[in-house]
Design a protein around this nucleic acid. Structure first.
Lengths: 222, 222
DNA sequence: GTCTTCTAAATTATCTATAATTAGATTTCG
DNA sequence: CGAAATCTAATTATAGATAATTTAGAAGAC
């Protein structure tokens, strides 16, 4: 397979690291040492530095000058912050996308919802969920807005995976269906209202840790 | 004067270039050649590359892999996009900041408004305006949200300077005063409504070009 | 005896210099 | 005149040097 010419080494490294951070393989707060990463990818440290900068721009890593870069930590406060930002921006995107939504797009979004309901694990569910949101928002044709929303989705996914690490129960997504129904009927305001609630709804769920203690976990669902 | 240790070369370069782009000294679409910039700053091109990446993350530059990076172009569509994003996010920030606004902060914001009214040029006005917005929004204590708003302000300033290049007429900012009055009275909803209108208001203004032709320029005011 | 403070070594980030690809322009040959 | 090959300029990546920070250990103070 020929290597993709439109892709630089730094971009590839940054994507791989982003996936690990989102998946939780890299602990929040843990250091990212450029020499180690460089060795792993068989590259030198300059492209690694550029990859780190990309991660920082996405909010997945934080860098203290001359002290290195760490995987971004997050707490409940930030989970809420990201959720509220998503709500504000996705509503805006939906308002502009609504006039351009076709029957075909809505059908595809419904298919994505079904795929989400039948997901065997969080990972699959998250992918289907993101597909749903992307489908109904992309027609707004506002590239900067969509890029911001993408970054927020990455952050959301991180929180999601940290809460539902192994266990996963499938369930039907009523919000998605309500949004689609409202859009089909041309009631954009109603769709916006449901979307706002949907994104901001933060589900709490008790999680049993290895020690047997029960801590409170959280997950953005939507 | 001792050099600031908490600041890397790449950051300094990026800030300087950002100022030039915002001020319009660097034409939209013009190429940023790393060797030239490196020579000017007496540095090598690695920190310059990192500076470019920062600019790209801010939306001030666009990079095509293996083809170099250019100053980001912008059109009326994007001006509107940035304005709408600002409206959505600033309203969110204000909602969370409102409970923490003190008398002292509002007084300082009023002072910033007065400074804006008496500004001799766009540059000074923009600075005062940004101070106003920052003052009333910072207490929301949502770092990610505030960072996004800052980037959008930079984009707005770019558009603003491109429209009001030399000529500038001072005028009193009624919106700012209305926002402050509503906040003092505890009517947060009203303040949010005015802020939304205020940010999204896009002033059009005919501008005479060097060739004598009249093109349409635009400016976000607020 | 424990804690602080100073010193030194090692670890790590940052920057410079150099080499290798790649895209774009020019020229040459059919 | 058009297409292909070459030449040039600029980006991308590597390797090595520099500077800063952190860690560890020893000496001194409480």
């Amino acid at each position: 397979m020929p290597k993709d010419k439109s892709e630089t080494l730094a971009i590839r490294i940054s994507r791989t690291l982003a996936e690990r951070i989102i998946a939780g393989q890299l602990e929040p707060g843990s250091r990212l040492r450029q020499d180690h990463v460089a060795a792993e990818f068989g590259a030198s440290h300059v492209p690694v530095r550029e990859a780190f900068q990309r991660l920082e721009a996405q909010g997945l890593a934080v860098s203290e000058p001359r002290r290195g870069v760490r995987v971004a930590a997050f707490d409940l406060r930030e989970v809420r912050e990201v959720a509220e930002m998503r709500a504000a921006l996705e509503v805006l995107a939906l308002r502009h996308a609504a006039p351009h939504l076709t029957r075909a797009i809505l059908d595809e979004a419904e298919e994505a919802t079904r795929a989400g309901d039948n997901s065997p694990d969080v990972r699959a569910w998250e992918e289907a969920n993101r597909r749903f949101h992307r489908l109904i928002l992309t027609p707004c044709a506002m590239p900067r807005l969509l890029a911001s929303i993408d970054d927020l989705h990455a952050a959301s996914a991180r929180f999601l995976f940290s809460a539902w690490r192994s266990e996963w129960e499938s369930r039907t997504d009523h919000d998605h269906r309500a949004i689609l129904a409202a859009l089909r009927a041309g009631r954009v305001d109603e769709a916006e209202a449901v979307l706002t609630r949907h994104v901001q709804w933060i589900g709490r769920k008790p999680v049993r840790t290895a020690s047997g203690a029960t801590r409170e976990a959280f997950a953005i669902v939507g």
